[in-house]
Amino acid sequence: MRPPKRLRRRVKSAVLLGLCATAVLITLLPLASILLECFVNGAGAITPAFFLQNPPPPCNPGPTTPCPVGGIQDALLGTLLLVVVASLIALPVGILGGIYLSEFQDRPLARPARFLADVMTGIPSIVIGVFVFGIFLFFAEQGWISSFSITSGYTGAVALAVIMIPVVARTCEEALRLVPVSIREASLALGIPRHRTILRIVLSAARGGVITGALLAVARAGGETAPLLLTAGFTTGAITGLSGWTPSLPVLIYYSAAGGYANTTQLAWGAALMLVLIMLLISVGARLALRNKFGGRTA
């Protein structure tokens, strides 16, 4: 009775392991398709005008009517502004938070702060959007800001910052923890005060990891759509600073994709190609920053 059982076990093993390999292929398929479609449908939209124009009125090309594809100029600018302002808020807070989690980990706040930061990273971004909208709504109800300022670039930047802060804090913490205790001790033994030890020695030793974390957070913020939909709004017109409705690349893709008009659809694909390329670039950059992180250099 043993031999058939043995054969069955071998076959079962081979089949299940084969299924695991197939699962990897199935996982890679959508990624390949997404990249391919972005190139095929979007590459044609990317001309110099693509960077110098704004979205056109939707239309389908007729025999006589011209139907321009337009461009992403102000949306790209808007995304840039939003991300920069969000980073100005989130990076200092996040890195200081990460320092607390790593360097003051025996203090009572460290454990709850770490746990809640983890929980925050799992909160849907649209809920963050609702949250930040709620904050500015409250400000408006108190009369501190005009109710026209609720939907503005500043609100959007705050929403992105809220998304970024826990990500930056946790990745910064992880990076700092990789720095051996002996380096801190060596520095402190030289009489270098603690804040300088952390800022000059530990942070610099861990800079690869910290930069990676910051880049990943920037990438995540730059690709967000839902919270901006609720906070920054959108306009196909020119950007007027962050105090008004602020267009962004992801929201442009969302609005341009709707309706199925030839020109805006192509614009959406072009913008998607741009966005994906930027994301891939950042993600490759993050990997490179990690490569020469602490360990390769200092140790």
């Binding site: 709620g134 826990p166 804040h195």
Partner: peptide, 24 residues
Amino acid sequence: FFGGLSTLAALVLIALPALLIVII
């Protein structure tokens, strides 16, 4: 001062989820 600053940042991490619930 530096310790206080990073404690403040940790407080932000703790306050955000609480604030989230209150505001929403």
